[in-house]
Amino acid sequence: MYEVIAFYIFSILTVGMFGIVVMSKNALYAMSALAGGMIFISGFFFILDAEFLGVVQIVVYSGAIMALYAFGMMFFDTTRDVSEKMRSKKIAYTLSTLSAILIVVILCMPLVSENIQASYPAIENVGNVQMVGLILFTKYLVPFELAAIMLLVAMISGIVLASKRMDEHLAIEEDDLEDIKELR
């Protein structure tokens, strides 16, 4: 019973929050709504007995990714409204058709895959976090290591891209220094 109530509350809140993200003209409102929606999505993970992913969702998405967006927004002019101009209707119609087909395929998937077999079924008396660790460090060890390398590459590229000539933009120019001296 509580599961049903929680599911519907979280569904309405998530769809509403993401609706704000998509429709809002203010970039700061969109970012705050996105952070809220991420936290509500972690609620679904807790309902579905995936505690590990729920915690990872809060820590990585609401913590790291939203902090990164907030940091990036310091560089942009966020007080100005976001300008929206739809130019080509053809692309929008094509994408709408493709997404409609995709949604039908998604919803038909459980019907065509009745005889599906669990390749890594849950073991009795083993918690979710323990089970994730068991599978992650045995069957998925190589993808895990590759993900680590990918994150390292992403970190280095982020530092290099964002910090290149940053001192020029943040430091006071020589002319400004002379102006300050003249003022004194």
Binding site: A64, I65, M150, V153, A154, G158, I159, V160
Partner: peptide, 12 residues
């Protein structure tokens, strides 16, 4: 993990 690295590179 992919989303995290995508944000780092994309924002840069």
């Amino acid at each position: 993990a992919v989303a995290a690295s995508e944000v780092a590179v994309g924002l840069g």
